[in-house]
Amino acid sequence: MTDAAAAPGRRPLVVLDKVNKHFGALHVLQDIDLTIGEGEVVVVIGPSGSGKSTLCRTINRLETFESGSITIDGRPLPTEGKELARLRADVGMVFQSFNLFAHKTIRENVTLGPVKVRGVARAEADRRAMELLERVGVAHQADKYPAQLSGGQQQRVAIARSLAMDPKVILFDEPTSALDPEMINEVLDVMTELARSGMTMVVVTHEMGFARRAADRVVFMADGQVVEQATPEEFFTNAQSTRARDFLAKILTH
């Protein structure tokens, strides 16, 4: 299945149409067509250098692109200014490196966006922050600073910070790749719970177990192209393309 449409019955929320991006002579995104439906969990996998992270970063314009279009909830991606800031409030992002403000407490990291960008009252932002920190299992760390937390805890705070903005979609760019192995599952468990709650998610990851468990759809990229997309069951048991079968043979045998 290489159809770019969102799953049946889902309203299209993020639509990429013929998106192209170059880094110098390197054509990193080649005519990307991809539609992500509301409430859908799309996991993007593929070899290093396939364009996965670039794809993720173009959706909230951390990377520019040269041609094609991206719409979020029916509106074209703004290029700059207030409109772009508004878009970024609607599109959460969780990075490899947690990107927390080192000089602010965990609670302050989570309340900052809602207060400054959304205009939420401080008391309400505080209440919601504690609710979200509870949800990701770090409420007892609310008054500590990022450096006092483990990597897994910091990444869970980063997820809570994204959720505090009530985003329409959250992008995850290899959220566990900087973590020690024993911390990976605590972050994936939070992401799995989030997926089950109906959050729209685009997840770039090497964690195949998460893809099998939580994805509605697996998108396989190689050499800047979407080579194949299917349900996890179809993809992992019966990949159609040679490229995907080679990739799976390499990663699933180790």
Rank of each mutant, 00 (worst) to 15 (best):
V187N: 01
K104L: 15
P8C: 10
Y145W: 05
A164W: 05
G46D: 08
M93R: 08
T253M: 02
L16K: 05
D31T: 13
Q148E: 13
G81E: 08
L55C: 13
L163Y: 01
V14R: 01
R156K: 15
M201K: 11
D3S: 14
V136I: 02
Q155Y: 06
M93Q: 11
D90T: 01
I36S: 00
H206L: 14
M130W: 02
V136P: 02
E207K: 10
F172Q: 03
G224D: 15
D126Y: 09
A102K: 07
V42G: 00
E228D: 07
V28P: 06
T200C: 06
I32G: 12
F236E: 02
P232Y: 00
D216E: 14
G68L: 05
G37C: 15
H140I: 02
A102L: 06
G49C: 15
E182S: 13
L16R: 03
S48P: 15
I106P: 03
D17H: 14
E186H: 07
V138N: 00
V203C: 08
N60R: 12
R135T: 10
A214V: 12
T35V: 15
L163R: 10
E80C: 04
P146Y: 00
L188R: 06
V169G: 12
P8D: 12
L132E: 00
F172M: 12
L163V: 09
P8R: 08
A125C: 06
E182Y: 11
N20K: 04
D126T: 12
F65A: 04
A6V: 14
T242P: 01
S69V: 01
G46Y: 14
Q96P: 13
F172A: 03
V219H: 10
P114N: 09
L87S: 02
L133P: 08
T79L: 08
G198P: 15
T176I: 07
V203E: 07
I59S: 05
I32S: 10
V204S: 08
E66A: 15
P167K: 11
I36L: 11
A178C: 09
V203D: 08
G198W: 12
D90R: 11
T35D: 04
A244C: 02
